[in-house]
């Protein structure tokens, strides 16, 4: 069996390869997307932590200098 014969699939190549192609894309999309999303979610958590630390620092400074107090919980 030659390669072109194999790709031709007895004249049904269009239908067979579209089916298998869509199937392959869907499986790869299912398995790879959560890996990418996980990286993004953890990055968001790190940003959230950094933001909270920054607020705590600011709150600490303002209470020492005695200037207007800003509570980090209010916003």
């Amino acid at each position: 069996m030659s390669l072109s014969e194999f790709l031709n699939m007895g004249g049904y190549g269009f239908f067979v390869w579209w089916s298998y192609g869509l199937f392959a894309i869907a499986i790869l999309w299912l398995l790879l997307l959560p890996r990418i999303q996980k990286r993004f979610r953890l990055k968001e958590v790190r940003q959230q932590i950094a933001l909270e630390q920054l607020r705590e620092q600011r709150a600490g400074k303002s209470s020492i200098s005695g200037s207007q107090s800003s509570s980090p919980e209010s916003d």
Binding site: M9, G10, G11, Y12, F15, V16, S19, Y20, F23
Partner: peptide
């Protein structure tokens, strides 16, 4: 069905 039936293996 010739080779068209091969879609069965994923369908």
């Amino acid at each position: 069905q010739g080779d068209a039936y091969r879609i069965i293996f994923i369908h």
